[in-house]
Design a protein around this nucleic acid. Structure first.
Lengths: 219, 219
DNA sequence: CGGTGGCACAATGTTAACATTCAGACATGA
DNA sequence: TCATGTCTGAATGTTAACATTGTGCCACCG
């Protein structure tokens, strides 16, 4: 049974999207480590599809910043340098600031309930990897609540790179992350439900700074 | 003669990029009006290439927001609704604000000279279409001066849509555009060269608001 | 011994043919 | 007359073979 307002477009996806999902999974699971070359023939053989969808999937992942492609030199998994992380942090800040303002204005109560639910779901995550996944999902919900299609697309352009960044952060040590972030997310969700942009904006900024400092201080 | 620092990677491009250029050209020239379907076979016949590169080019243009693709329903040239223009304006504002701050911090003198040159070049544009092209080129230069790769990529995700928006604005009437914008660009360039972010930011905001109001007031 | 030129291999770019799917039209029935 | 079902045609999704390009190796020369 599907509620009337939640009817998905039920659009069927091509093989390329499927392949892209598998590759993303592989990258986040560590099967394809950063810097590794992704050869089209190898992948098409492993996934049992032709090179066409693989090619298209690689371009999709390039759009997400997870791989880089060069002329006749194939695709390699993105490696995040410290400078890249600075870029991610600043751009993410600009996007999220707009997202919060728009969410406070345009979000439905259901949208904000979804944000709160994402914050709660994080508490029940069994291991750090799952926590990171829920961390991203929380911010996804915030962007979705903005009802700003192009803003969501811009976020998707760096979303997976931020995810990668979170994983490396976890690898450096989980102190101050696993316990602090869920509480912060809960507070942020509450401020959004109160539709208090003036209070929420600096809290979101602090939230980002906390994640960011961990890597710059030690790195 | 090429200066040492300006040596382009001299990377060769594939047919897909070439096709994408031709299609963009066609869209901006009005050959493919908004809403029109772009059929792969038709395009591949017209441009005398196979469907592969055409397919890839369409995905590229989708990334730029110039076309929209659906499963088994092909690509259509984007039509900008009033709501889309509001989205473009707000997202562009968030990106450009960051670009100005980063440019003031990171830009070389050459970068800012290029911004100023772009502003001057606009004065010598022969017709409104060329003015719009130089208008975009000016903002390109600002983003380039930020030395922020991901920010530039995010800008490229809406750049061509903003261009489309400028063209429709011109179609509504050129008063207050052809004469005012070049002067504004000159002032903005000067503020950037003075590296005065505090003064530049509100001026950039006014500049965007002026372009934006024309369409919302009449539309 | 260091540098340069060419050669062969391997991987990507491109092409054309095959398979699948969507949209509209037409006929049929209530 | 309207709704429903099937069918047809055209367009996209997919595949596999062909062409082009980059890279590394090895011989050759200075």
């Amino acid at each position: 049974m599907i509620a009337p307002g939640h009817a998905e477009p039920a659009r069927r996806r091509g093989l390329a999207d499927e392949v892209a999902d598998r590759l993303r999974e592989g990258i986040f699971a560590g099967v394809y480590e950063p810097g590794r070359q992704l050869r089209e023939v190898e992948l098409s053989a492993a996934l049992d599809v032709s090179r066409g969808p693989v090619r298209e999937a690689l371009r999709l992942l390039e759009r997400e910043g997870l791989v880089r492609c060069s002329w006749h030199r194939g695709a390699t998994v993105t490696t995040l340098s410290p400078a890249d992380i600075v870029e991610l942090d600043s751009l993410r800040g600009a996007l999220e600031e707009l997202a919060v303002r728009e969410a406070v204005r345009n979000a439905t109560d259901d949208d904000l309930a979804a944000v709160a639910a994402a914050a709660e779901a994080m508490r029940r995550a069994p291991d750090p990897r799952e926590v990171a996944r829920h961390d991203i999902a929380f911010h996804d919900a915030v962007f979705a609540a903005s009802h700003h299609r192009r803003l969501v697309e811009a976020w998707q352009g760096i979303r997976n790179q931020v995810h990668l960044f979170l994983l490396t952060r976890i690898a450096r040590g989980t102190e101050g992350y696993l316990d602090a972030v869920p509480d912060e997310h809960r507070d942020l969700a509450a401020l959004l439900r109160a539709r208090d942009a003036a209070a929420a904006l600096p809290r979101f900024a602090e939230h980002r700074a906390r994640a960011f400092d961990v890597l710059t201080a030690e790195g």
